[in-house]
């Protein structure tokens, strides 16, 4: 990877304790994210995809330390966020922002739009008090909310508008990295496109870097430079958009892509149907975590965990699968 990585996540683990017994001892852990490493370069849009419960949102929250990581390091501009004290981290939040999935839940119902935006500016001291109002108006206009709506409460807006307010809020402190946690999933398809295009425009305008978390491959294809595929707390494949969509290497990625409906009738793909449920992250399967559902699994998959390895191709691609490893050897 290039040396200009804005964000580097190293061996991130996020285990949530399960309390049990009379005295509330920790009896086990939900291994939501288990040893995940990746980098995000400046100006890039990296997406994390995977089905519900694969740990993609947890990864996003751990990066921002909204939940403190269980172990691992998160380097932002070379500085380890995990080692920062609470108050140091609060200052750092100026550079790292998040847009949440549910625009109805992510805005405090008791604050007006301008209060929501101003609070962040005030805490991070990005702009002197007398200029704030003007800046808020500008920001809202950038995301398509009129100046006359500045003193309204969130419930007076539609879902799409609320998400725009959420975006304006994230932008209000001039961040460098924005984690978009399923930022468009709750919106109608037509509104999704508007918001995605808005995000793209803003990226150009403010030189933003996005970590885009989504389960929607169509959305991911639209916005990403690189894509990380997660399954049950682990990365199974990382590739640039072109390589991933043209030549998915991991059986799980192949299954995911085969589920995208095609509009081209001459080019009907065979759909790979995965059987069974995702195993529990409390007690994940040994070896490759996907082997219980993998149509191509063989002996080794149940015993040995595959490592993420580069594969040669037209672009950048890394896969964690014994099959690609063996075919290479």
């Amino acid at each position: 990877m290039s040396d200009q990585a804005l964000l580097e996540v190293k061996e991130l683990k996020q285990y949530f304790p399960i309390k049990g017994g009379v005295f509330g001892r920790t009896v086990n852990h939900v291994k939501a994210v288990d040893d995940v490493s990746f980098t995000v370069n400046e100006g890039e849009t990296v997406s994390i995809v995977g089905e519900s419960g694969c740990g993609k949102s947890t990864t996003g929250r751990a990066i921002l330390r909204l939940d403190n990581p269980y172990s691992g390091n998160i380097y932002f501009q070379g500085e380890d966020l995990v080692s920062l004290s609470k108050s140091q981290m609060r200052k750092k939040r100026k550079d790292l922002q998040i847009i949440f999935q549910d625009p109805y839940a992510s805005l405090n119902p008791r604050q007006t739009v301008s209060q929501i935006l101003e609070e962040a500016m005030e805490i991070q001291k990005v702009i002197p008090k007398k200029d704030r109002r003007k800046k808020i108006t500008e920001l809202l206009e950038t995301v398509g909310i009129g100046a006359h709506q500045i003193d309204r409460y969130p419930h007076e807006f539609s879902g799409g508008q609320r998400q725009r307010i959420g975006i304006a809020r994230a932008l209000s402190v001039d961040p460098k990295l924005i984690v978009c946690d399923e930022a468009v999933s709750a919106l109608d398809v037509s509104i999704q496109a508007q918001v995605l295009n808005l995000l793209k425009d803003l990226q150009r305008k403010f030189k933003l870097t996005y970590l885009f978390i989504s389960h929607d491959l169509g959305v991911v294809r639209h916005i990403s430079d690189r894509i990380i595929v997660m399954y049950l707390g682990k990365i199974v494949e990382v590739a640039d958009k072109k390589s991933l969509f043209n030549q998915p290497r991991h059986p799980y990625t192949q299954a995911l892509l085969s589920a995208i409906p095609s509009t081209n009738i001459t080019e009907r793909r065979e759909r790979i149907i995965l059987t069974g449920d995702v195993p529990s992250p409390i007690d994940p399967p040994a070896g490759c975590r996907f082997h219980t559902r993998c149509p191509l699994a063989f002996d080794r998959c149940a015993k040995e965990e595959p490592k993420l390895m580069s594969v040669s191709g037209s672009g950048y691609q890394q896969v964690a699968c014994h099959l690609t490893e063996e075919s290479k050897a």
Binding site: R61, L64, L66, K86, S87, R90, K91, R93, K94, Q97, I98, F100, Q101, D102, A105, S106, L107, N108, P109, E119, A120, I123, Q124, G166, R169, V173
Partner: peptide
């Protein structure tokens, strides 16, 4: 447990 509490933390609001 609501998202807007997470939003507040993300802004850097103190506990």
């Amino acid at each position: 447990d609501q998202d807007y509490i997470r939003t507040a933390y993300a802004k850097g609001v103190s506990d």
